[in-house]
Deep mutational scan, measured.
Amino acid sequence: MTEYKLVVVGAGGVGKSALTIQLIQNHFVDEYDPTIEDSYRKQVVIDGETCLLDILDTAGQEEYSAMRDQYMRTGEGFLCVFAINNTKSFEDIHHYREQIKRVKDSEDVPMVLVGNKCDLPSRTVDTKQAQDLARSYGIPFIETSAKTRQGVDDAFYTLVREIRKHKEKMSKDGKKKKKKSKTKCVIM
């Protein structure tokens, strides 16, 4: 069974824990209790493949930012979460993405942009803004509501699919490099 290491990042209060708990335990946590770091595991079937999701729910508070490099190193894919009623959390996505790329030393890291709290009427981040940002990053965008469960499975499952595509691409690139290195030079 394939294991996928997913990391949920975003500013404090955007609903990272609520999304994760909704996926794992099928219930909505409405009281806000700032996370330092929590880890969850769940076995699911995605596109006919049974897999184990190892999900790291991270601290959004700035005082825990020193811990970010460590979990970013171990993560295979990242859910970059903002709240649709919090423009600052949307603007912060850029910083999370840049930090992930720096730590992973790669421009090509599996990510999904997630606009959470889409059940709320007080939207300050337009869907088109988020779609445009995701398009500019070359990553999928999904709106979710941890409260109603809308888009929750889709967000995590899409990230797994992005990781699969990335692994497939990397193995193809690896095979191309191996083929090239088999060419021999004969000096007579």
Rank of each mutant, 00 (worst) to 15 (best):
T124E: 11
I21E: 02
G12Q: 08
G10T: 01
G174Q: 03
F90E: 11
Q43T: 13
G138M: 05
V7M: 10
M72A: 06
N26F: 05
E31W: 03
Y4F: 12
D105V: 03
H27I: 15
F156S: 02
S17P: 01
Q131F: 10
D54M: 02
I36M: 03
E98Y: 03
D132S: 05
V152D: 09
Y96R: 07
V8P: 02
R149G: 07
C51H: 13
L79N: 00
L133N: 14
I187K: 12
K165E: 05
I187P: 13
E162V: 03
E63V: 03
G12R: 04
I93K: 01
K165W: 10
T144M: 04
F156R: 01
H27D: 15
P34W: 01
D47E: 08
D132G: 06
V186H: 13
G15L: 01
V8W: 01
R164W: 06
A134Y: 04
P110A: 03
V14C: 07
G13H: 14
R102Y: 04
R135A: 07
D126Q: 06
D30A: 10
A155R: 02
D47M: 07
Q131E: 10
E168T: 03
N85S: 04
D38W: 00
S65A: 07
V160C: 14
G10C: 04
A66T: 11
T74E: 15
V81Q: 09
L19I: 13
D108E: 07
E3Y: 04
A11P: 06
Q131V: 10
G77Y: 04
R149T: 15
P121K: 10
Y137I: 13
E63Q: 08
Q43I: 04
C51M: 13
Q70L: 05
V109R: 03
T74A: 12
Q70D: 13
K42L: 05
K169T: 12
E76N: 06
R149L: 07
M67I: 05
T183N: 09
K172Y: 14
Y71I: 13
K128G: 05
V125H: 10
Q25P: 00
Y137P: 10
V160K: 11
Q150L: 09
I163W: 02
G15S: 01
I36V: 07
H166G: 10
V29S: 06
D38M: 00
